[in-house]
Design a protein around this nucleic acid. Structure first.
Lengths: 346, 346
DNA sequence: TTGAAAGCGCTAACAC
DNA sequence: GTGTTAGCGCTTTCAA
């Protein structure tokens, strides 16, 4: 263990004493302020090293009102997360940007209702300068919570209570993307086009379905099967569709994973893709869309870039400004465009 | 937004004023101390609710020296993590136990060397009461770091510098488990037994290999292929083994995922399992071992329980005792037993 | 049962 | 350039 003058972790004061200067000077060196004589700065750095001194962040953020950490809150059963390449992609984008800003990303999971109060205290307690939040259900209390406590936050995907509030979100044009996907199917002569949706308590799933309906104005409810964005859920929803409409000739799946599940189910049912049933996915995850058999025609949304953008928006709202909830910050949400990538499945 | 007396987040003082009492009394109510008259307590709770007050954790931990948060540090490229059911299992165990203790789990990734200083500052800054660390390479600086700053920590897997330090670890009996696996193969009449190992800069991989060697005293180096615990790595290592020893009749893989990769590669090479080549895995991950074809014979290590145990050990070292680095805490590492689960692959 | 006062370790004016 | 001083928002003796 390190030498501890008294038995505690060394403090600024210990360093100051050891270097024969005042606390302020030490503080200046630590915070990289230039106006300290090089010789003195060197002496201080030495003392810091000898003592193994590490600034107490609690004390620091008590006065600066900053922590240099950003929470990444994922409202999703962990077990889903750890098997879905979509999240990997999201987190990579976020991490890269956050680290570039010098912020420490701190990942929090919400798996059950019990978790909310704890997370709320964590977020409200000044542990982080801001939060990036994902996968919210339409009835999620988190948007109201962060708004209420004035914590800078950016959502991945449009939150249910979208406007009039002090937070921003970044979302892909799910509706437009869905429209394009379905139009593509129509243009290829498909007439019985079903869709397997995400959980309909999530805005993105709803938006996607709306896009589908925009094109297929009078699509019967039989052609719509709710899923959950997973492979398994996609397979099951596809089975339901097939049972209800044996003459189905196309499926628009709300995620690549679901499209992948659809492909499997089709094969199991003896249907060929795209000959008998064409399939279009959504996401364009490289590890999925390019490796299915046949490769997926899908709607591309630059996930990694979107997430990077979220981190940038957050930075803009946290930087400079301490955690005071002053005059309403600019509401600068972004809807990013999507584009259809045609491969072999449709 | 909430009402903010001045434009800041409400403080204890604001609550006290509103309830017409002193800060101390409010503090008592917040911390659930009993000796406050019910009427007063009620009035205070009301004021708290009206103000939307949330305690400032920085201020609090500045005096209590506790944060009620525990860091879970994973030294692993995130992209590996998000595709490996092993991690899911680990995290579930940890989370459950931590939450039970009322601690907020906070996940940190280390993906590249640059991340170390930042994480070090985070850990040393008092943001967390302790840390649970995983997947350490033998040359990882983290054990020394946390030891040096006196942060209570428990490692998942034996760290390289094992003894004489103030930290504990929990590890499965990798060596014993490997021995049992290989003995099983021998008892089934297998004679050309190869092994696909984990990365040999990780203690668990080394221990496993040692167990293999314990049984096969003079195993030639040709029978050992280094992998990385992944499916892909397992397939590649298996291919290498097959190339070097065409008459191979058994493989001991250091993880279920690698065993799974082995099964695939064997099939691709026209070898039957277990008839031509028997395969034994390690981990006994339900989602993997039970679903391969054929189902895996593998070494069971109760991962979830092990991780829960880690969290308990940590609790024992953090609770009560503030972050002072006082007299060396009990070094109470645990090696948990393993057992062979025989299914069809060997 | 409640209040007053001190202080946790740090930064930020402000003097010198 | 460097030191002094006054808090940041809380908990915690100690008195009342």
């Amino acid at each position: 263990m390190t030498e501890r003058p008294n038995g505690h972790r060394p403090t600024l004061e210990d360093v100051a004493r050891r270097a024969g200067v005042s606390k302020s000077t030490v503080s200046r060196v630590i915070n990289g302020e230039p106006q300290v004589r090089t010789a003195v700065a060197e002496r201080i750095r030495q003392a810091i090293a000898e003592l193994g001194y590490l600034p107490n962040q609690a004390a620091r953020s008590l006065v600066t009102r900053r922590s240099n950490a950003v929470a990444v809150v994922v409202t999703e059963p962990q077990h889903r997360l750890f098997v879905d390449p979509y999240f990997d992609c999201q987190l990579r984008g976020i991490r890269n940007e956050l680290v570039r800003q010098g912020a420490q990303p701190v990942l929090l999971f919400i798996e059950e209702p019990n978790d909310y109060p704890r997370v709320r205290h964590f977020l409200g307690g000044g542990h982080v300068d801001g939060a990036l939040l994902f996968s919210l259900r339409t009835d999620d209390p988190l948007p109201a919570t962060v708004d209420h406590m004035g914590l800078p936050a950016v959502f991945g995907g449009r939150p249910a209570v979208a406007s009039g509030h002090g937070y921003a979100y970044v979302d892909a044009d799910n509706r437009g993307g869905a429209r394009e996907a379905v139009r593509h199917l129509v243009s290829r002569g498909r007439r019985r086009i079903g869709t397997t949706t995400g959980p309909l308590n999530q805005a993105s799933a709803i938006d996607s379905l709306d896009g589908y309906r925009d094109v297929l104005l009078e699509a019967s409810a039989h052609l719509i099967a709710e899923g959950d964005f997973t492979r398994q859920g996609g397979a099951e929803a596809t089975a339901a569709l097939l049972d209800r409409c044996p003459d189905l000739d196309a499926i628009f799946a709300a995620s690549d994973l679901m499209a992948c599940g659809a492909l499997h189910m089709l094969r199991a049912r003896g249907q060929r893709a795209p000959e008998d049933v064409a399939v279009v996915g959504f996401d364009d995850l490289p590890t999925v869309a390019e490796t299915t058999d046949p490769p997926l025609t899908t709607v591309h949304q630059g996930i990694e870039d979107m997430r990077r953008l979220m981190a940038r928006l957050l930075f803009q709202r946290t930087s400079g400004r301490p955690t005071t909830g002053d005059s309403a910050p600019p509401l600068d949400s972004v809807i990013t465009p999507t584009r259809l990538v045609v491969r072999q499945s449709a």
